[in-house]
Amino acid sequence: MKFELVEEPMLGLKLIKRQCAGDERGYFSRLYCEKALGEFGWPSEVAQSNFSKTNAVGAIRGLHFQYPPDAEAKLVTCVSGAVFDVAVDLRKGSSTFGRWFGTELSAKNQMSLLVPKGFAHGFQALESDSMLVYFASCAYAPENESGVIWNDKDLAIDWPLPPSTISARDQEMPPLKSIGDGIKV
């Protein structure tokens, strides 16, 4: 089973299509392969695997990241439903610092987003009961956890739906300006 690079909207950020093998029973798709994903820049270690279910259409989660030494790369895959997945470049010295990329990930389109270290990540549920699996290159470190407010005026993310639910924590995230000129990863 192969992975195909569909787009690299920003250096290091990659939209990947997973190959499926199917028959009358259904299909098989590989979510993770160290060797194949290493060719796209995956740092080769999975320290943590996460699963999230978002009940309500329009709910927003994010935009989250971790500061070094716990900065993490993520491989994000929607296994049920659909989400509008967003990554924001926070890397110090990056020519795309402060820019965002958004794309639909769904169980139907078999796409995954490889988010490198130094990016914030979030998503909006486009269908009820949307489920994501994401692999992280570093374990969760609450002391280095942070984020950027989902509706930051400087980012002007074009969320496809009006927000229905946002956690209190995500509503209190700081603006992009709080990061200064970026995160050195």
Rank of each mutant, 00 (worst) to 15 (best):
M1H: 12
V6Y: 00
E7M: 01
P9G: 05
M10G: 01
L11P: 12
G12K: 04
L13W: 00
Q19T: 09
A21S: 12
D23T: 04
Y27S: 15
R30N: 10
L31A: 13
L31F: 13
C33H: 14
K35D: 15
E39V: 11
E39M: 09
F40H: 09
G41D: 04
G41S: 06
S44L: 08
Q48H: 06
F51I: 09
F51L: 13
N55Q: 13
A56Q: 13
G58F: 11
R61C: 05
L63C: 11
F65K: 01
Q66G: 04
D70K: 07
A71I: 06
E72D: 12
E72N: 10
V76T: 09
T77R: 10
C78Q: 08
V79K: 05
G81K: 02
A82W: 00
V83Y: 03
D85S: 08
D85H: 05
V86F: 05
V86I: 13
A87Y: 02
V88S: 07
V88C: 10
R91V: 10
R91P: 08
K92R: 15
G93V: 10
F97W: 10
W100F: 13
T103F: 00
E104D: 10
A107I: 06
Q110N: 14
M111H: 15
M111T: 02
L113D: 04
L114W: 00
L114F: 09
P116V: 06
K117S: 12
K117R: 14
G118P: 11
F123C: 04
L126E: 04
S128V: 03
S128T: 08
S128Y: 02
D129F: 10
V133R: 06
V133I: 15
F135E: 09
S137G: 08
S137E: 08
A139M: 07
A139E: 13
P142I: 04
E145S: 12
V148C: 06
W150Q: 07
D154Q: 12
D154I: 00
A156N: 15
A156R: 13
A156G: 09
A156L: 11
I157C: 07
W159H: 04
W159M: 03
W159Y: 01
P160G: 06
A168L: 14
D170R: 03
Q171Y: 03
E172M: 13
P174L: 03
P175G: 14
P175E: 11
L176Y: 03
G180P: 07
V185I: 14
